[in-house]
Every structure is written in C-alpha cells, then in structure tokens.
C-alpha cells in the first residue's frame, strides 16, 4: 500500500519535473538557422567549389596531374614571339596561352589536392557550396577568360608560326641542302679544274 501511494506520488512529481524542463525550453532561443536568408558560419579551411584565377595561371598542368579523379582538363598553346602575356602576381612570366581550363564539378571530390602544387596559388577553394544544376553537363565550369574566337585565333597564330617555322626550316634545309649540293659542284669543278689545271 505504501509503495502504491509512493508510486502515485512519484509519477505525479516526476511529471511536474518534466513539465518544468519543457517550460524552461519554451524560452530558450531557438537553435534554428533560417537557412536561405541566414547562412551558417562555415569552418575555416572549408572545401567547397574550386576557383581558378586565370590572371595568375601559367598553364603548368600540375593541378590536372595532381587530381585523383581527372576532373581538370587543361590545354595550352605556346605564345608566338613578340606577344606579351604579362606576369603573374608573384612575378613569373607567362609563356603559354591557356585555351582550355575545364573543371567538372560532377567528378570533383573536393580533396583539395590540386591546390597545393600550384606554383602561383591561382587555384583555390571558395565558400560557394550552392551550385546544383539540373544537367550534369552544366557542372563543367570553364575558367578561361579568352573568348572562343580568341582561342581559335591563338591556336591559329601558333600553327601559323609553327608552319612558318616549319617552312623556314624546310627553306633552311633546302638552302642547306642546296648549299650542300651546289658548292660541291664548283668544288668538284674546281679541283677538277685544278686537277685539270694541274
């Protein structure tokens, strides 16, 4: 009987304790962050979407080689002599036109391995994490600052230069060959002549 009354009292009393706890929580400020309008503070060294500062990129391809999932695609074209590409922020002279710099964020695993090899620190993590797309192709980001026409132009320039060089080489080779072929004739002639003379 004593236990029975005690149980009843205990039940009532503990309910009141529980109610006290919940009532206190009624006035505790909510921990909710109103997400799209208020954004949570991201931790330091967060790893989100990559960004490439193309002004500093020298097209060294080290990031693409470091990438474990091959999501970075780089193509470069040599500049033709006389073209000034400017310098990077740490004073290196640029020598290559970067005509393709695609990062496929559908493949990217956000490992940050591409960030460390970069000699000019031009590829880095940003705080952007809201970049979902409806199509997978839309996740391929093109960082090149050149216009499509310019890219073709650069390639053409290089090819022209190459062709010019090739032509020059051929011409030079021809010249050399001609020179190699031609002089012996007189020389042959000459000794002959000389021999004949002699």
């Amino acid at each position: 009987m004593r236990d029975y009354i005690y149980n009843f009292w205990q039940g009532l009393y503990t309910i009141l304790i529980g109610m006290k706890v919940t009532f206190k929580h009624l006035f505790v400020p909510a921990v909710t962050i109103q997400y799209p309008s208020v954004k949570p503070q991201m931790p330091e060294r967060e790893r989100n979407r990559l960004y490439v500062n193309m002004d500093d990129c020298i097209g060294c391809d080290q990031c693409a080689r470091a990438c474990p999932v091959n999501c970075i695609e780089i193509e470069t074209v040599k500049s033709i002599p006389g073209e000034d590409l400017g310098t990077t922020s740490n004073g290196k002279k640029k020598a290559l036109w970067v005509t393709t710099f695609n990062i496929d964020f559908a493949k990217c695993c956000y490992c940050q391995l591409c960030v460390f090899p970069c000699p000019t620190e031009c590829i880095y993590m940003t705080d952007v994490y809201e970049f979902s797309e409806f199509k997978r192709e839309d996740l391929v980001f093109d960082f090149v600052t050149l216009l499509p026409a310019e890219r073709i132009q650069k390639k053409k320039n290089f090819e022209e230069m190459q062709a010019k060089k090739e032509a020059e080489k051929i011409a030079a080779a021809k010249k050399a060959a001609a020179q190699a072929n031609k002089p012996p004739e007189p020389k042959q002639d000459k000794p002959d002549n000389k021999e004949e003379n002699i």
């Binding site: 919940t22 929580h25 009624l26 505790v28 400020p29 909510a30 921990v31 909710t32 109103q34």
Partner: peptide, 13 residues
C-alpha cells in the same frame, strides 16, 4: 509553435 519552441526550434516561419 509550442512544440517547436519546446524543442528549441522555430516552427513555421
């Protein structure tokens, strides 16, 4: 609202 605030949430906003 009561349930939300008792659980330290905000409820419909």
């Amino acid at each position: 609202k009561v349930s939300a605030h008792m659980q330290d949430r905000l409820g419909p906003m």
